[in-house]
Amino acid sequence: HNLTITQGKLFFHYNPKLCLSEIHKMEEVSGTKGRQERNDIALKTNGDQASCENELLKFSYIRTSFDKILLRWEPYWPPDFRDLLGFMLFYKEAPYQNVTEFDGQDACGSNSWTVVDIDPPLRSNDPKSQNHPGWLMRGLKPWTQYAIFVKTLVTFSDERRTYGAKSDIIYVQTDATNPSVPLDPISVSNSSSQIILKWKPPSDPNGNITHYLVFWERQAEDSELFELDYCLKGLKLPSRTWSPPFESEDSQKHNQSEYEDSAGECCSCPKTDSQILKELEESSFRKTFEDYLHNVVFVPRKTSSGTGAEDPRPSRKRRSLGDVGNVTVAVPTVAAFPNTSSTSVPTSPEEHRPFEKVVNKESLVISGLRHFTGYRIELQACNQDTPEERCSVAAYVSARTMPEAKADDIVGPVTHEIFENNVVHLMWQEPKEPNGLIVLYEVSYRRYGDEELHLCVSRKHFALERGCRLRGLSPGNYSVRIRATSLAGNGSWTEPTYFYVTDYLDVPSNIA
């Protein structure tokens, strides 16, 4: 807008934040220059609390790290170098490059900038070799853009010569660093050979998330399962459950009422301010606690030095998902009996873990797994792929695949051998790939016309006998059925096997 004052003059007093240069501009645009008398524009009460600059400061050096910015700028000295009290560095987070010096300023003089007072450097006698002032900004957020400017702080001049310097606002972004852990990993099994893994992005990506790394490792069953005799009275049979499938998407929606109208769909109840505040506090606490764990609990591995020492970490090797089922080394339970199943799973520490690289999504279907087997899954978020990966501390989750139908069934015939004193040795093959492992066998036998009897055969007993022995049988026709019990439950009964026990007292003698 054009402003013209045809008559009258300007009068400025007691404006401590208004620089004289701005008042002189007002004289020019209003056409009143030359009308004012000496005392109409006070030299001592206008701009006496402001830094009124008329020179431009330029930054000469900028260096960044993930949490620091090192700045240096060209030296500046007023005509009387004693008038320079120091520099004021202003900075704040700036997602967009549209910041002005006066953003967030209120009537009390406060604003949204963080201000650092910096002492002037030592003055050199040689004007050509003056030290460049600077400042190291610490405690910054990774991968965050900051708006920065600097200006001088000078003393009051009796001659009211307006001098000083100020830089333009520059924008500097800190470097990326390792992201925080992925949030809320959930693993479920939808079949006997697959596990579905879902997660949420890290709360602090500290860069642009480029991919996720998912490692999985087959877990050995508890050692007590191999040692305890679950045929003993009072000892509860062990059981394991597989990871249940995901709930429906509708039930997972946030901010939804727990109660549904019987007449149909209901609208979600909005969260109160107290609920939102509580969630923010919980989120802040979780982030602080995660940072504490990362800094205190997890110790970084030592990389190899120039002395030739090897990095103890196993090298990563990509495998196809079809090879995942046989990740671990199978060892027989008892070496003397080769027909026992290889369900003991000690994992070799030198073995390469299978892994998958996930790009542009937060889910993965891990296939080719062994049925009813526990897996430990390790999830890392990465925001750099080359020249070397920059990934987060791992988040861990466990899951067990679903049982395989008929995996616990005894394959092959049940054979028998009759000894003296009416002892019958029953023999059968253990299931080759049971659900988890076989903890015991149930032997059901009966003599024709009598009630059915049951015998429990422990895992250890089966390994020693290759089956079991029935003792003290009365003469007669017998039928026997056997079924295995694994961590997933009972298998199917075998087809009945028949044998006849004679009275050993009636056996004919070869003595003449």
Results as ranks from 00 to 15, higher is better:
residue 343 T to F: 08
residue 243 S to H: 13
residue 434 P to V: 11
residue 257 S to L: 07
residue 312 P to L: 14
residue 461 H to N: 08
residue 360 N to P: 13
residue 320 S to F: 13
residue 293 L to C: 02
residue 427 M to P: 05
residue 218 R to P: 12
residue 344 S to H: 10
residue 441 Y to G: 03
residue 259 Y to S: 12
residue 375 Y to Q: 02
residue 303 T to C: 15
residue 374 G to S: 07
residue 337 F to Q: 11
residue 486 S to A: 13
residue 430 E to L: 11
residue 383 N to C: 07
residue 502 T to P: 10
residue 337 F to H: 13
residue 423 V to P: 01
residue 471 R to I: 08
residue 354 P to A: 09
residue 354 P to N: 13
residue 359 V to M: 13
residue 452 E to D: 03
residue 360 N to R: 12
residue 474 S to C: 12
residue 223 S to N: 11
residue 449 G to F: 11
residue 332 P to A: 15
residue 459 R to Q: 10
residue 394 A to Y: 06
residue 491 G to F: 02
residue 367 S to T: 08
residue 461 H to S: 10
residue 479 S to Y: 07
residue 253 K to V: 06
residue 217 E to C: 14
residue 260 E to H: 15
residue 311 D to H: 14
residue 453 L to C: 05
residue 364 L to R: 12
residue 441 Y to P: 02
residue 363 S to L: 13
residue 481 R to D: 01
residue 215 F to D: 12
residue 488 A to N: 09
residue 414 V to L: 07
residue 359 V to G: 10
residue 239 S to P: 14
residue 238 P to H: 06
residue 398 S to L: 10
residue 397 V to S: 06
residue 298 F to P: 02
residue 205 P to M: 08
residue 453 L to E: 15
residue 272 T to L: 04
residue 343 T to C: 10
residue 437 L to W: 15
residue 209 I to K: 15
residue 395 A to Y: 07
residue 390 R to G: 14
residue 332 P to E: 12
residue 474 S to A: 10
residue 492 S to P: 12
residue 404 E to I: 10
residue 389 E to H: 09
residue 288 T to N: 05
residue 312 P to Y: 10
residue 406 K to G: 13
residue 289 F to Y: 08
residue 499 F to K: 02
residue 460 K to D: 06
residue 366 I to M: 12
residue 425 H to G: 08
residue 207 G to P: 02
residue 249 E to L: 09
residue 245 P to G: 08
residue 479 S to F: 05
residue 392 S to D: 02
residue 382 C to L: 02
residue 463 A to D: 13
residue 218 R to E: 13
residue 492 S to G: 14
residue 465 E to M: 09
residue 302 K to R: 12
residue 465 E to Y: 12
residue 264 G to C: 04
residue 298 F to D: 14
residue 342 S to Q: 13
residue 291 D to T: 01
residue 470 L to V: 15
residue 281 E to M: 05
residue 394 A to K: 08
residue 485 T to Y: 15
residue 460 K to S: 13
residue 412 G to V: 07
residue 478 Y to V: 02
residue 232 L to Q: 14
residue 395 A to P: 03
residue 261 D to S: 10
residue 273 D to F: 08
residue 459 R to T: 10
residue 381 A to P: 08
residue 444 S to A: 06
residue 484 A to R: 02
residue 429 Q to L: 07
residue 503 D to S: 14
residue 343 T to D: 07
residue 252 Q to S: 12
residue 323 D to P: 10
residue 400 R to F: 06
residue 435 N to K: 01
residue 325 G to D: 15
residue 221 E to A: 12
residue 275 Q to M: 07
residue 242 W to K: 03
residue 204 D to S: 15
residue 370 R to V: 15
residue 508 P to S: 09
residue 416 H to M: 12
residue 376 R to L: 11
residue 377 I to H: 03
residue 280 L to F: 15
residue 252 Q to E: 10
residue 502 T to I: 05
residue 208 N to M: 07
residue 468 C to A: 07
residue 251 S to R: 07
residue 300 P to Y: 04
residue 226 F to Q: 08
residue 273 D to V: 15
residue 483 R to T: 02
residue 250 D to M: 11
residue 444 S to G: 15
residue 422 N to E: 06
residue 245 P to E: 09
residue 234 G to R: 06
residue 471 R to W: 04
residue 246 F to I: 07
residue 488 A to F: 08
residue 498 Y to N: 06
residue 287 K to G: 02
residue 491 G to Q: 12
residue 241 T to R: 14
residue 500 Y to Q: 05
residue 447 R to I: 10
residue 407 A to W: 05
residue 291 D to S: 01
residue 443 V to W: 01
residue 303 T to V: 08
residue 477 N to K: 13
residue 325 G to Q: 15
residue 278 K to L: 08
residue 387 P to M: 14
residue 229 D to K: 05
residue 304 S to R: 06
residue 435 N to P: 01
residue 390 R to T: 05
residue 308 G to H: 04
residue 334 V to T: 09
residue 349 P to E: 00
residue 443 V to G: 00
residue 399 A to C: 04
residue 392 S to G: 01
residue 289 F to S: 01
residue 351 E to V: 13
residue 423 V to T: 14
residue 285 F to E: 06
residue 381 A to L: 02
residue 257 S to A: 13
residue 318 R to Q: 15
residue 422 N to Q: 09
residue 311 D to R: 06
residue 315 S to V: 07
residue 359 V to K: 12
residue 312 P to D: 04
residue 296 V to P: 02
residue 504 Y to R: 05
residue 451 E to K: 13
residue 263 A to W: 02
residue 289 F to H: 01
residue 280 L to A: 15
residue 398 S to M: 04
residue 372 F to K: 01
residue 508 P to L: 12
residue 473 L to M: 12
residue 247 E to V: 08
residue 492 S to N: 04
residue 471 R to G: 07
residue 321 L to V: 10
residue 287 K to H: 02
residue 306 G to F: 08
residue 319 R to E: 14
residue 271 K to M: 10
residue 446 R to S: 07
residue 307 T to L: 11
residue 319 R to S: 14
residue 317 K to C: 09
residue 482 I to V: 15
residue 502 T to M: 15
residue 353 R to F: 08
residue 452 E to H: 15
residue 219 Q to K: 14
residue 340 T to K: 14
residue 429 Q to C: 14
residue 252 Q to G: 10
residue 231 C to M: 06
residue 231 C to W: 03
residue 460 K to I: 10
residue 313 R to E: 14
residue 222 D to T: 06
residue 403 P to R: 04
residue 353 R to S: 14
residue 404 E to V: 14
residue 439 V to M: 06
residue 488 A to S: 05
residue 465 E to N: 11
residue 231 C to K: 07
residue 224 E to Q: 15
residue 498 Y to K: 12
residue 399 A to G: 10
residue 339 N to F: 08
residue 418 I to R: 13
residue 457 V to T: 03
residue 501 V to L: 10
residue 436 G to E: 03
residue 425 H to A: 10
residue 289 F to P: 02
residue 266 C to Y: 12
residue 226 F to T: 04
residue 414 V to R: 02
residue 296 V to A: 13
residue 486 S to P: 00
residue 230 Y to M: 04
residue 391 C to T: 01
residue 281 E to P: 04
